[in-house]
Nucleic acid binder design. Structure first.
Lengths: 107, 107
DNA sequence: ATAACGTATAGCTGTACGGCTATGGATTTG
DNA sequence: CAAATCCATAGCCGTACAGCTATACGTTAT
């Protein structure tokens, strides 16, 4: 049962891949060539990473002639945000429970 | 230049490891034995994962006799939250820029 | 002191994956 | 039509790592 978070975390775990996503967030739509120019890895590697980002829903691709434009899909980060705040909520709940317990013990 | 996000994302990318962290968030402090009981993997594997979580700052360990208690360190998620909101901010900035551009073009 | 218990470490194995080069398919240019 | 350009795919290699068993280390119990 590979959850949705799995792919998201795994996809963002690789530095090269995350850097690509960050550039797309910062600078907007880019072609594969433009991305490759400053990626520090070969073009096939960039294409491969972009494909994985796409499968994770983190980017969109748009074909125009012989070049492909990629852009960030920020909405895909939602599960990550949800997960994080859920962990925080669990933590706070336990903290509240502890507080309640101590309060009851005080009486 | 392995950034701080690297370890965090990589550490949370593994399902088994993330499940351990989630349990510690939900249920609070647990011993290695208690965690192993429902982890679905062997005890050495659990210990290994806990060590990695510890190196990432995601958990604390507390030794009590012959058993070790682990607990979640929620603060370690801060860089992750920062990164996410930063990406969102970049995205919104570009969106605002686009809006401004369109507004100027409208005149 | 010895045994039993809880955890950590060591060492091994298989697999997943990031990097590369080479090449193919599609499109634009000469 | 030929050549060049852009990207994707195929195939290979090396390394990282998650899982295992065996074992060592420290603590409690007998």
């Amino acid at each position: 049962m590979a959850e949705a978070h799995d792919m998201l975390f795994r996809t963002l775990a690789d530095p090269t891949r995350r850097a690509l996503f960050e550039r797309l967030c910062r600078e907007g739509e880019k072609t594969v060539g433009a991305l490759t120019a400053k990626a520090g890895v070969s073009q096939p590697v960039v294409s491969k990473h972009l494909n994985l980002l796409k499968q994770a829903g983190l980017v969109r691709d748009r074909h125009e002639g012989r070049q492909t434009h990629y852009s960030a899909q920020l909405g895909a980060l939602a599960p990550l945000i949800d997960w994080t705040s859920q962990m925080a909520r669990f933590w706070e709940t336990r903290f509240d429970d502890l507080e309640n317990l101590l309060r009851r013990m005080d009486q």
